[in-house]
């Protein structure tokens, strides 16, 4: 096993290109370090020293975060709204000091709380290999198995850019036991509502329930053009379609997760109703 601690992105890409799928990238190490001895890869790359740890505003309503940015760094930023809540919901203080944004995006079931939220913020990943850069739509990366773009083994995630979370963005993490920070379901939503109270666009995603976050495009499509009411909320909940994919683990069955999806999505949609009524009055 060869260990590399590159100091630049270019150096990292060259190593990645040489070892490809026989290589493990170590961001924070919280998920990968325990796997190293089992997997015994030919190469391990530590990303500690590459300069991809930053948070910056790139447009008036868009933010970019470098892939090696620690989760705890997000918590120190005031303008990140729901992303702050999602970051705080991740594990303990020490883990947040180690885990990276890039790692969280690839963390898989039942982790990846940031990823669920980023999905509703129309996030895009900037990835690079020795052949050049490309942009991947995070929603598509988590989309249908056949259509989804694949992250190649010689590619490195450099950053994620996304719309700034505003007051129309919600994130909820449901835990089996309070304080354990182990989610059995996460829900992220973003509704764009016009002055009359009609929904012009909707993004709804469920996490900690499948191998990756799941956007429910059927509910999103149903809500589009509607004004929220008790009746519409009821109908929207009936249309939740991705719950058929929910997984079970030692903490929750797929049926329990489906039940929670309805309960918590109802609460979020009711919060939007309250928000709209306050705006009108």
């Amino acid at each position: 096993m060869n260990i590399f601690i590159p100091k630049s992105v270019q150096e990292t890409l060259e190593i990645l290109n040489k070892y490809c799928s026989e290589c493990i990238i170590l961001g924070g190490g919280t998920l990968t370090v325990p796997m190293i001895s089992e997997l015994n890869p030919r190469a391990v790359i530590l990303l500690d020293k590459i300069p991809l740890s930053y948070i910056k505003q790139i447009e008036s309503k868009k933010i970019e975060i470098g892939s090696t940015t620690k989760i705890s760094s997000i918590m120190g930023h005031d303008n990140l709204g729901a992303l702050n809540i999602a970051a705080k919901s991740i594990s303990g203080w020490a883990i947040r000091n180690m885990a990276t944004v890039g790692g969280n995006i690839l963390a898989g079931f039942p982790w990846g709380d940031l990823a669920t939220l980023l999905t509703v913020l129309d996030a895009e990943l900037l990835v690079e290999s020795v052949n050049g850069e490309r942009v991947l739509d995070l929603g598509k990366l988590y989309g249908d198995e056949e259509k989804r773009p694949k992250l190649q083994s010689n590619e490195l995630i450099k950053s994620v850019s996304f719309l700034s979370p505003d007051s129309n963005t919600y994130f909820i993490k449901v835990e089996r036991f309070k304080g354990t920070k182990r989610g059995i379901l996460t829900i992220a939503t973003r509704l764009i509502i016009d002055k009359e109270g009609y929904i012009t666009a909707a993004r709804i995603a469920f996490g900690s329930a499948f191998y990756h976050p799941l956007r429910d495009k059927i509910v999103e499509e149903f809500l589009k053009g509607k004004m929220l009411s008790a009746d519409i909320i009821e109908k929207a909940l009936e249309k939740i379609s991705v719950s058929r994919l929910f997984l079970k683990d030692s903490l929750a069955s797929e049926q329990y997760r489906s039940k929670l999806a309805k309960i918590y999505l109802r609460r979020i949609l009711e919060s939007y109703m309250i928000q709209i009524s306050r705006r009108v009055t």
């Binding site: 919280t30 020490a94 000091n97 180690m98």
Partner: peptide
């Protein structure tokens, strides 16, 4: 969290950190 140590004043988990880090 039993393996927590401080690195540059911040808590980290030493069982999930390679010493070279």
């Amino acid at each position: 969290g039993a393996c927590t140590v401080l690195v540059d004043g911040n808590p980290i988990l030493s069982c999930l950190t390679f010493a070279i880090s």
